[in-house]
Design a protein around this nucleic acid. Structure first.
Length: 475
RNA sequence: GCGCCCUUCGUCUAUCGGUUAGGACUCAAGAUUUUCAAUCUUGCAAGAGGGGUUCGAUUCCCCUAGGGCGCGCCA
């Protein structure tokens, strides 16, 4: 069955509805499609399924495109807009009608609802009963505009050979004749998907497993048209940390929210990849490596939950790997988004110089920005609670003495450390005893990158001023 | 109700009939250390339940339970 599909150049696609933002689950679906295409040198297409005019929003299209771009998932060719292709979809419906593979159904929505209610009351499966299946077009119903339903086989079964789910068999008698063209002449999703996939040359349909049963329906249209059957791969869904379906209740759902929380796109790619896909014991997998390794065989069948702790770990790894200047810009952008003024050139330079020590300690850009605050702070420094406790009057006296002792030292971290160590030794103190007050005075916190590096980055003048300036109060 | 899918440590997962069931995150302890991280070491922790098949089942089959999805003139 895959044979026909495999004769054609490999094409995957991501086909979201523009109803909001790029959902985290959708992002993973897009990632898998993208990786599969890139791995096999195929094409990754993007299609916007905007046939539901009520729910489609133009802003949502931008959000989708932006989300994908941010994630680094570049698509090939033009974006296809499904609604624009409605005439083509209708054409296929009429073709099927002409071939006797579809038929007009004059049942009104009210009649259908009544039918379903009755089925429900009788405990029978709810599906279209085929009441117009074998009737000739009815002139007596000229006041009713008919919909077009596809005529599905009623015996035998439909097999979906899914690369993730395995062989899934549906008895044809549980499938009903569904509508492919509405009475207003617009196509339904079932039809549009199949026609677009065919016209776009899609060979591999990789999507959420909420579409698994749809595949059996779509297969009816494909068979009726005699089109090649794509390879299917239905991915398990993503759940919230509590195992329930992902919803507003879980906080972040949109990819843009993860960006706002300070996650890096490469970290998201790695983390999302490992949700449902594995390569032995490998955890930290670069995108290049993922492209080399990715295939559908290693996709898990069961749903996965989002785990922020693990995401943080992965993000921390990529922050440490990231370029200092890039991180500096992300920190500055984050500060600006919070209403802080832009960085001066000098601050930017200090930030980059200090990034090596900073990025080792952060799991998100927010944490990074937080610990980088000392670069931007002005005197007197705001102290956090712990720093305030450290900076006792005695500690300040010591800081003043230290400031004195280093005021003529060559301004290099190594030299400064030598002198301060000697200072501590002559006073019978451990380095830690003097380092913490210095840290508090220089950064306003009790945790920071190595303190002599901080001195070097801050520069002599600023360091001495911070050591000597006394915070307003030291209760 | 009908159909389909899923079920290994708290979480993500490895295992493709024979393992002391492995790794990662988290958590705990230790090493290192000027703080915090990073790193390293160690530890806690799992095959939903019940039947089969088999010399042997986490692995294959069936049932039950639990979870998910679909059953629209929504996508």
């Amino acid at each position: 069955m895959d044979a026909m599909a495999q004769d054609r150049p490999l094409v995957t696609r991501f086909a979201p509805s523009p109803t909001g933002f790029l959902h985290i689950g959708g992002a993973r679906t897009a990632l898998f499609n993208w990786l599969y295409a890139r791995h096999f040198g195929g094409t990754f297409r993007l299609r916007i399924e905007d046939t539901d005019r009520e729910r489609s929003k133009p802003e949502a299209i931008d959000a989708l495109l932006q989300g994908l771009s941010w994630l680094g998932l570049d698509w090939d060719g033009d974006v296809v807009f499904q609604f624009a292709r409605a005439a083509r979809h209708a054409e296929i419906a009429h073709q099927l009608l002409a071939q006797g593979k579809a038929y007009y159904c004059y049942a009104t929505p009210d009649e259908l609802e009544e039918m379903r209610n009755q089925q429900k009351a009788e405990g029978k499966p709810q599906r279209y009963d085929g009441r117009w299946r074998d009737r000739a077009p009815d002139d007596s119903r000229r006041n009713v505009r008919p919909a077009i339903r596809i005529k599905c086989p009623q015996t035998g079964d439909t097999l979906i050979e899914d690369r993730v789910q395995g062989d899934v068999r549906f008895r044809n008698d549980v499938l009903d004749d569904f509508i492919i063209l509405r009475s207003d002449g617009t196509p339904t999703y079932m039809l549009s998907v199949v026609v677009d996939d065919f016209d776009m040359g899609v060979t591999h349909v990789i999507r959420g497993d909420d579409h698994l049963t749809n595949a059996a329906r779509q297969r009816q249209i494909i068979d009726a048209m005699g089109w090649p059957v794509p390879v299917y791969a239905h991915l398990p869904m993503l759940h919230g940390p509590d195992g329930a379906k992902l919803s507003k209740r879980h906080g972040a759902q949109g990819i843009h929210e993860f960006e706002g929380m300070g996650y890096l796109p490469e970290a998201m790619r790695n983390y999302l990849l490992r949700l449902g896909w594995s390569h032995g014991d490998d955890e930290l997998i670069s995108t290049e490596q993922a492209i080399q390794w990715f295939d559908l065989d290693a996709v898990q069948k069961s749903p996965a939950r989002l785990d922020y702790k693990k995401l943080d770990f992965v993000n921390g790894h990529y922050i440490r790997e990231a370029d200092d200047a890039r991180l500096a810009e992300l920190v500055i952008a984050h500060r600006q988004s919070k209403g802080e003024p832009t960085a001066t050139d000098h601050q930017r330079q200090m930030l980059i110089a200090g990034m090596k020590g900073l990025k080792e300690r952060a799991k998100t850009i927010i944490e990074l920005a937080d610990s980088a605050a000392y670069v931007f702070a002005s005197r007197p420094l705001p102290l956090d609670e712990k720093a305030r406790l450290v900076l006792t009057p005695q500690a300040q006296t010591a800081n003043t003495a230290i400031a004195m002792s280093i005021s003529n030292v060559e301004w290099k971290a190594g030299k400064l450390e030598e002198v301060v160590r000697a200072f501590a030794a002559t006073h019978g103190l451990r380095l830690g005893d003097v380092a913490q007050p210095i840290r508090a005075a220089l950064t306003g916190k009790t945790t920071s990158p190595p303190i002599f590096d901080v001195m070097e980055i801050l520069g002599k003048e600023e360091t001495l001023l911070r050591l000597n300036s006394s915070p307003k109060s030291n209760n």
